[in-house]
Design a protein around this nucleic acid. Structure first.
Lengths: 349, 349
DNA sequence: CTGAAAGCGCTTACAG
DNA sequence: CTGAAAGCGCTTACAG
């Protein structure tokens, strides 16, 4: 591979000058610059990252830490989208991404070693809940860090996530506006996945605005999988006072709930309104199309990485948590309550 | 961060000796070694990767190239599992993983630059179909490469994938042994995803053994999503001579087919046998449990990475394609054909 | 605007 | 078994 020396010789300048052209320093004459650029092109020169990293203040590499959690959380399709957002943004900044996936069984040393090798200018961590990454080594080494997701220490700093509280609020407000009062919630794991707690809080706030207290008995806890949506729907819909609407904390559980409704001759949305969260591409056979709260995992990855570069470049020292907008997407699974039963009597089956 | 010099000083030896201890060279006295090890521990010394990469023959980094394909292929849960296998194996070998996700819109230069920076000792590429990675730059730079999945040039070399042909064979053989003769196939995209072609070939071979010719009209083409499984099932099951069994090329399409069967009062397996491929964790509400062909994406990642290290260490020069075993997992969606209709007459509805 | 020189933290022959 | 010295390919003050 061509080195800076080869380029210098071909362009008849010094290594120093080549280096200046590479790093776009001003005060290089146009003519010299052009000659160097041509030589670089001709030799397909690409600066050796190891050498840059060794001498300069930068390694041109950021770390991406994706802790392996429980099976179903790790296989969340969002993870790949966030990773994609991080990688493509890093690439835009001419940075490379070093991937690190610590397992829960890893001793502390593994994590330390990854950072102490001195390879990274900063790290993005993917987090969703307790037991994640801790900052002490990062602080000690002076490596900036941005969290894509909620920080495990819950500090409102250097992290990027969806406005989950607003999402919970919008979902409930939508149902309340339609006239629903007896609303069940199919929650994810609470006190563990921070986003879940936030969405619950948002739901609570919406209900408070309508003067309603959230009944804990109307909250069921699933694990984000389709199957748990089915089970929790069953648990909630078998109640004496059957809820007229369900807020499901992700689209997959909403699909499970819909499946339960189909199996029990509940028409959606006539007998039961359903709203999800995420706005993933559900199988087209899940009918009717789901009303949901849209969020953008790729944007989370992008925004987190952009802000990491702002930290690396010392443009900012830290930033307050960024909450990305979420959006209510009304499709065909929500309507006024008991639209059908009002006309046809209350006995549904 | 502590350097090799700090360690040398603390242990009262030369840098050279420390380096020898780090790289586990023999011919260091036990006593010296122990002192150095203690100093390393005390200073939390970790060799600087950039310096190692610059001077030594190795960078201790491998590249992982995950091309962004069509939406649904990229979001295949297998990808994350393969990545996990690669990362954890690299980590076992004290290597780091540099992630690279080229988009179809990337100009050639982006890919080149990733490799020309001289950061990687080798690369693992994730591939499934045409239009992937080409070897010319790798060959030019002398960077070893292993493909996790079928190589896009279809060379039977330095690649690791499941024994898809055997999988196709096992699936069909299972159905044929149960007595099915009129068998439909819900295929993935053919002439594009290599594994699909292989599975079809395996299916063909099984049928030939039973003296049956595969009828092209009994093959429908889906896109691996649940919805397409539903649609193709419909297309095949509405035929004059309704197939008594369907071989689905992944579990998600099998779930779609099952859903179609439920909606049309076909009992599984009494009226219709169904076999999938992959053995993913389907939602528990998909009932009955699916008979399928098991494969192990994490193993693909691990095996590919292990062999990459064998190439890097020059233990081998190349290796013939490794096909990882697949396994028939018989659960409850397959049975002898028309188990019910034989007893109850042929009118099903 | 240009370039000579020092040095980043290692590894690797080589000599002892 | 141990260590002095050269050098990997860059960047960065510094001098001109």
């Amino acid at each position: 591979m061509a080195t800076i020396y080869d380029v210098a010789r071909l362009a008849k300048v010094s290594k120093t000058t080549v280096s200046k052209v590479v790093s776009n320093t001003p005060y290089v004459s146009e003519e010299t610059k052009k000659r160097v650029l041509e030589a670089m092109e001709q030799l397909q020169y690409s600066p050796n990252l190891a050498a840059r990293g060794l001498k300069g203040k930068r390694t041109y590499v950021i770390g991406l830490i994706v802790p392996y959690h429980a099976e179903h959380l790790f296989h969340d399709p969002f993870i790949l989208d966030i990773v994609l957002g991080v990688e493509s943004t890093a690439s835009d900044y001419d940075y490379s991404v070093l991937l690190f996936m610590p397992k829960p069984t890893d001793k502390r040393g593994v994590y330390d070693r990854f950072l102490r090798t001195g390879y990274v200018d900063g790290v993005v961590t993917l987090e969703s809940h307790a037991g994640g990454i801790d900052d002490t080594i990062l602080d000690e080494l002076g490596i900036p860090r941005v969290s894509a997701g909620y920080r495990e220490d819950l500090k409102q700093i250097n992290s990027v996530h969806s406005n989950d509280r607003l999402g919970g609020y919008l979902a409930l407000a939508h149902l309340l506006e339609l006239g629903h009062r007896n609303i069940g919630i199919i929650s994810g794991p609470a006190n563990f996945v921070v986003a879940v707690d936030e969405r619950l809080q948002g739901a609570r706030e919406a209900m408070a605005e309508w003067g309603i207290q959230l009944d804990p008995a109307l909250i069921g806890y699933g694990d984000f999988n389709v199957g748990s949506g089915y089970q929790v729907a069953q648990q909630l819909l078998e109640r004496e006072q059957r809820p007229s609407a369900l807020f499901c904390m992700n689209d997959r559980m909403a699909a499970g709930a819909m499946y339960y409704a189909h199996n029990h001759d509940l028409l959606i949305p006539a007998d039961l309104s359903l709203i999800g969260f995420d706005d993933i591409a559900l199988p087209t056979i899940v009918e009717p199309p789901l009303t949901t709260i849209h969020q953008s995992p790729t944007e989370i990855g992008k925004t987190a990485t952009q802000h990491l570069f702002a930290l690396i470049n010392a443009e900012i020292e830290s930033f307050a948590t960024i909450t990305l907008p979420v959006e209510l997407v009304v499709r065909q699974t929500t309507a006024a309550p008991y639209a059908r039963s009002i006309h046809m009597g209350s006995s549904l089956k």
